[in-house]
Design a protein around this nucleic acid. Structure first.
Lengths: 193, 193
DNA sequence: CCTACCGATCGGTAGG
DNA sequence: CCTACCGATCGGTAGG
């Protein structure tokens, strides 16, 4: 009886690491904790990864890539700024629902990267933020969106999607569709009637 | 020449700790790091605090108290739900501008508390969230606010104010008044024109 | 993948 | 507030 070809040991370690980094934080997670989670000895982890930071690095950069790829697709569309923003809200929700633990570790623990990776990560992140903000500014210039400080608008949108990581963790049953509908309505049309 | 009666050594340690916890995280901050920041030896820290966690505990519970006190005041007012929400947005912005480092440590590092303090902290936090949510539900029932999932509305509002901690850190010059005006406008009336 | 082990660093204490 | 020190634990390596 062959198993459905599950994940490699390497992937298993990566997922366990993402979970531990999310739950305890990177610094408070020891290689012995991680080894115990995948039923091997700590020294055996080094057959799969060069270092503790190497694991974090892959979690951070792989997820950054997912966000950038999604953004690229939205940018290439012929949609209005309003539709692009809805699509981006959907992108964040979709990524959060697909791979929650990994995303949370990516979001909260990247600061533990060492140079030169830390600077590289920050550059990628800034690039994402700028391109996101450009879409908002474009919408303001075209009169689709309310004129206001575009930094404030950008960061408010960003972080309003960030709580999803905590929310899903607590096991709430709510569909991605309903989330996208309600959050989009709130951000685009406001809480007032 | 008498100095303006500055802070006690204890307060000095607390502030240095908040800064280190914010910048490196609680787990990655050693008592030797902290001692160096206030120019004493690590062992001398124990004349002021019982343990490393004791410092974190005070940062977490003191700040929780500030939020609860502000919420209490808003609840006691005779304002409409809309006005209460504006006041709460103002409360979060005001606290963030007053004592930024401490608030960031409080927000990100409380999970490193040990029992029974961890449970106590979570209880207080849940209480705050519930009362915040009650105000939103009240506004929906009275027809002031758009009907939607009140959990989603609550958490979106919460986290949309959380990015302030990162934002101010990067040294942006923008007044608390402008922040409150723009964020309130976005959340209450939406980004669409 | 394991056993055995390394030097460094950790939070904290004793005693003054 | 310091010197001197503790046992525990850390990330990582050697060698098989």
């Amino acid at each position: 009886m062959t198993m459905p070809e599950p994940k490699s040991k390497r992937d298993e370690i990566r997922e366990a690491a993402a979970r531990l980094f999310r739950d305890k934080g990177y610094a408070a997670t020891s290689m012995r904790d991680l080894a115990g989670a995948v039923d091997i000895k700590a020294s055996s982890l080094y057959n799969h990864f060069d270092s503790k930071e190497d694991i974090l690095r892959q979690i951070c950069f792989d997820n950054a890539q997912r966000f950038l790829a999604g953004l690229q697709e939205v940018e290439n569309s012929a949609d209005s700024a309003t539709e692009k923003l809805r699509a981006l809200i959907g992108l964040h929700i979709q990524i959060a629902t697909e791979d929650l633990t990994s995303i949370t570790a990516f979001n909260d623990e990247w600061r533990h990267l060492n140079e030169p990776y830390l600077s590289e990560f920050k550059t990628i992140r800034r690039d994402y933020e700028r391109r996101f903000q450009s879409i908002i500014e474009d919408g303001m210039n075209k009169g689709e969106l309310r004129s206001m400080d575009s930094h404030i608008a950008t960061y408010t949108l960003f972080s309003s999607m960030r709580w999803l990581y905590d929310w899903y963790k607590s096991g709430k049953r709510i569909s991605a569709d309903e989330l996208q509908r309600d959050i989009s309505a709130l951000l685009m049309n406001g809480l007032s009637v």
